[in-house]
Write a protein that binds this DNA or RNA. Structure first.
Lengths: 188, 188
DNA sequence: CCATTCACTCAACGCTTGTTGACTCACTCA
DNA sequence: TGAGTGAGTCAACAAGCGTTGAGTGAATGG
């Protein structure tokens, strides 16, 4: 009753997308290990074997369903930097995509996810450090800024702390801004 | 050749402690789900069935091996507060006990661990919020401080970011202090 | 219209897991 | 010394997992 005439290729693409959506949602909610292919298949109204046929393995399904964390930044001055940072960790403007949450959810218990997140954070630390005034501790300060924001995002989106969930993201960003500036160095 | 004469009760206590140590270590390294009773038993040079006999279930073993995160704080002024916070999340003076790391490792993928961490963080947020000057956003500011430090600890101890691992904890604490003060409010 | 392709299902495999009950044997103690 | 307790082992179960190969039936294309 919904789609009156669909070609075979269209149906194929649609089911594949349905599987990916279900996978992303379950991976974000339960993490890699606790998400079963059978559960993904059920959520997508499909046989488990089809998931294997399309994606080859659970690992490959994870890779395709999940997105990496935001990459390096392009800001050059401190104010712009803070904005980009807050946005990239989902503390402004709508939050992180579900695929990034799925990756983060698994980062403490899955080797591959940990490597991925470590690399992404490393790139972000490097670009923040490069944008900082040439202090001695530029890279360390950058790492503290990035991990501190990571912690706020975890508390907010993955742990669902009540205190943070009730507050609009812009308000959180506004409170964080002076703290980040204090972290990036006395000079500004 | 090591312990020449040990009573039955002594041996029993020793094996139980050996099992708990192995469990704590493995839970901290791999998390609840990926740690198997068989692996704990092997690491403790013991049969898996003995672990069950002593602790009843994997969940109960986890509860007994793991320690909760540090509880509420007792500081009344801002300077003391910052010190206690940094210490309680392992950023000063030797770091968190392994049992707390085990709990944190599982907090994103295990319901019970998540509940435990949420509760501990909530208590900590409350006590920080109470110690803050009576600003409107006291509780929110407290939550941001606590989760930011949580993030630094995760990056440092659970993800093992190189930039943070190479630096002494006191140095990290020194850099974080002004940022925390900026977060807790303009008035200090 | 018929042979072919291909999305999709079914049933089963091999493995690992938590968990259990029966067993062995060294130590305790009367 | 000899009965009994209790620490520790062994072998197995049932359930759940990722994964596989054979099968089905409708859309396709000549």
């Amino acid at each position: 009753m919904s789609t009156p005439h669909q070609s075979r290729a269209d149906r194929r693409r649609a089911t594949e997308a349905r599987i990916l959506d279900s996978a992303r949602e379950l991976f974000a909610e339960k993490g890699f290990e606790r998400t079963t292919i059978r559960a993904v298949a059920t959520a997508a109204s499909v046989d488990p074997a089809l998931v294997m046929q399309y994606f080859g393995s659970k690992r490959e399904l994870f890779s395709q369903a999940v997105q990496t964390l935001p990459g390096p930044l392009t800001a050059t001055d401190a104010d712009e930097l803070v904005d980009q940072l807050l946005a990239s960790l989902g503390l402004k403007l709508g939050g992180l995509p579900e695929g990034a949450l799925a990756m983060m959810r698994s980062m403490l218990t899955d080797q591959a996810a940990a490597d991925h997140v470590r690399a992404a954070l490393g790139r972000q630390i490097d670009s923040v450090g490069a944008a900082l005034p040439a202090a001695e501790d530029a890279e360390l300060r950058a790492a503290l800024v990035v991990t501190a924001l990571l912690g706020v995002t975890i508390g907010h989106r993955l742990l669902g702390l009540a205190t943070l969930r009730e507050v609009p993201a812009d308000h959180i960003a506004a409170l964080l801004r002076p703290a980040i500036k204090a972290l990036t160095g006395p000079q500004g």
